[in-house]
């Protein structure tokens, strides 16, 4: 029987994904949240799990270093990998938004300055709207940019909106709904179809129950 390698985005995504996998019978005994290990085998010996940084999941799966992956839609939109995106796992839900100072009004007289951890998403969105913009890529604390005048608006993930509120910012526009996705290498789905198709259908049943949000 073929072995399947599954790449999980380290952190909360991996924690929930591991719980979901356990419910469909794929159990990683040697995994614990505090472990520094990066490679794990399940009890059946058929599935191997690797933990990688979330932004790296698409490339592992595209290149076939992993057959299957679990990663947020935000990463998939940003990285645009050539992979199958077979299932919405429905957990890790949040929104990708354009945010700015309260009462911000878009000026059409000059180009828009946008700060984001997601330069491709931001660029594609404003290009699609025909708005001339310049993207500044930041690596964190993006909310700071409009406050201190580095950018007019930001494009970022909003979960509860608490951070925005505390920094006197608000959502100007929802762009995408984000949640965790099951992705599959384009060749593996065909060459290891039995085991991967069964994994997809078992996880799909589980998401329909709606226990993991």
């Amino acid at each position: 029987m073929d072995k399947v390698k599954i790449a999980l985005a380290k952190g909360r995504t991996a924690d929930i994904a591991i719980e979901m996998l356990a419910q469909v019978g794929i159990v990683f005994r040697d995994y614990s949240k505090n472990s520094r290990k990066l490679v794990f085998k399940d009890t059946s010996g058929q599935v191997e799990m690797i933990l990688v940084k979330s932004g790296d999941v698409p490339i592992y799966v595209e290149k076939g270093a992993a057959d299957v992956g679990v990663v947020g839609k935000d990463v998939l939109l940003e990285e645009e990998a050539d992979i199958f995106e077979v299932l919405n796992l429905k957990f890790g839900q949040c929104r990708m938004c354009v945010c700015g100072k309260k009462d911000y009004e878009l000026s059409f007289n000059r180009k828009l300055i946008v700060a984001s951890k997601y330069p491709n998403i931001a660029k594609n969105y404003f290009d699609g709207k025909g708005i001339h913009c310049e993207i500044i890529k930041l690596n964190g604390s993006v909310e700071l940019a409009p406050i201190i005048g580095l950018a007019d608006v930001i494009v970022d993930i909003v979960e509860s909106g608490k951070t925005l509120k505390e920094n006197h910012l608000e959502v100007l526009k929802d762009i995408y709904d984000i949640s965790a996705r099951l992705v599959v290498n384009k060749v593996s789905l065909k060459t290891k179809s039995e085991i991967i198709k069964s994994l997809i259908s078992r996880l799909e049943e589980l998401t329909l129950k709606g226990e993991f949000q």
Partner: peptide
């Protein structure tokens, strides 16, 4: 065409 255990067409 796909070969087994090779992730690209």
């Amino acid at each position: 065409g796909y070969a087994d255990n090779f992730g690209k067409a």
